[in-house]
Design a binder for these strands. Structure first.
Length: 114
DNA sequence: CCTGTGACGTGTC
DNA sequence: CGACACGCCACAG
């Protein structure tokens, strides 16, 4: 990892958490930020994903905003790509909004034990 | 150095 | 419900 990329562990931490999101579940930028504590804010998580999503094999489609909205769909090249990936895992989506978000939501600070 | 700009979140009106 | 403000941190110009 070069300095331009993994400056702190932050990128690596985001990478690690995103990789651990179970299939068919999803989490939020804020959730990851909360799990990482003071290392970064929710904005940082989005920024991190924006940098590493394409290069690494990350299931970045499982990271949504707090309301379960597909805010990052435009970064998947194909606007429908993100929704298709989620739906292929059994997640229902209506108008860029994940249905039953409470059930789908996976909070790393609660369900992830490292 | 200062400003704008985000794959964000919370709060207020 | 939508519009804003503010906090957040890094980065580009």
């Amino acid at each position: 990892m070069t300095m331009t990329e993994y400056k702190n562990n932050f990128f690596g931490d985001v990478y690690e958490v995103v990789k651990l999101i179970p299939k068919g579940r999803a989490t939020s930028y804020g959730g990851i930020a909360q799990y990482l504590g003071s290392k970064g804010s929710a904005r940082m998580v989005g920024w991190a994903l924006n940098n590493i999503a394409g290069d690494l094999n990350l299931p970045a489609h499982r990271v949504l905003n707090r309301n379960g909205r597909l805010t990052g769909k435009r970064y998947f090249g194909n606007p429908n790509k993100m929704q298709e990936l989620l739906e292929s895992e059994g997640i229902e989506i209506k108008d860029d909004q994940v249905l039953y978000w409470e059930k789908v939501y996976w909070d790393p600070s609660i369900e992830l034990v490292i």
